[in-house]
Nucleic acid binder design. Structure first.
Ligand SMILES: [Mn+2]
Ligand SMILES: [Mn+2]
Ligand SMILES: [Zn+2]
Ligand SMILES: [Zn+2]
Lengths: 138, 138
DNA sequence: GAAAAACATGCAACTAAAGTGCATAATTAA
DNA sequence: TTAATTATGCACTTTAGTTGCATGTTTTTC
């Protein structure tokens, strides 16, 4: 049994063909991908199935959705897909306005923010927009 | 000439009837509003015109768009609509997952974030999700 | 003040992404 | 092996955002 298969099983995801392929696809990318990216990465592809697959991954804690402000949802593998349970990273995301790529800066956690009285924080999303390393080194 | 009329003119926006109404509508709200909210706030309303109006306001630096992760754009008046010129606030936004309201926390600026080498920051968006003061005091 | 130019509005139509319903296929449980 | 569950494929719907174009209104020019 392959390693990917084990990862999926650990997350209670039945390792079907498409799921194995999508997981591999995600590991090969080091930036967040849209559903369109995923769709383009497969010859034989059924949009709905890919959609439901990535949503399954999300629900089971294998990937996290990123809203970088472009209006289309992006997805990236969680940092530690080997460990189960949400280890809520709350790292920040960088969106390059030149190449349109969005990167997980997993080493950069969102700093603590003090809120006005009565406000209770449950989750955070910090997106920094600018020029990425690849695009600035040209 | 009314005060609102002057504010619009200062921002190089021709003070038409709808624009005056929308500006007043925005000042009366203390939370960010969607285009649907705006539309619902007017008896006689043409969605496209309201859309173009809010976009004009945005372009002219009267309102800023907020992406709180719900998938629908929200808008709120800039802090100092009396001053012209983008005084890029970069304050944080709070989205209440209970009442779905999004609030500008204009006093809470986004802290400085250090980025990896090569990454250049141009803009930031920090949204905190949780329970707002109104919803937690019940 | 009349004509021309610029800008605003209303209506229809389009786009893109997200999501649902349902039939069929495949897998797992009984 | 049968029944139950889950996955997949296809069509279709929903919603937000956006554009094209004709008409209305305001501003500029002469
Ligand atoms: Mn990430
Ligand atoms: Mn704001
Ligand atoms: Zn880039
Ligand atoms: Zn609330």
């Amino acid at each position: 049994m392959g390693e990917i298969e084990l990862v999926l099983k650990k997350h209670q995801i039945r390792p079907t063909a498409i799921r194995l392929l999508m997981y591999r696809f995600l590991t090969e990318k080091n930036v967040a991908v849209t559903l369109n990216d995923i769709e383009a990465g497969f010859d034989k592809s059924e949009r709905t199935t890919l959609y439901r697959t990535i949503k399954t991954f999300e629900k089971k804690g294998l990937v996290h959705q990123i809203d970088d402000g472009t209006g289309v949802a992006k997805y990236a593998l969680d940092e530690n897909t080997l460990k189960v349970g949400d280890s809520q990273d709350l790292h920040l995301h960088f969106h390059c306005t030149k190449c349109n790529e969005t990167t997980c800066l997993t080493d950069h956690k969102i700093p603590h923010i003090s809120l006005p009285k009565g406000f209770v924080s449950k989750d955070m999303n910090l997106v920094i927009k600018g020029i990425c390393d690849k695009c600035s080194n040209t």
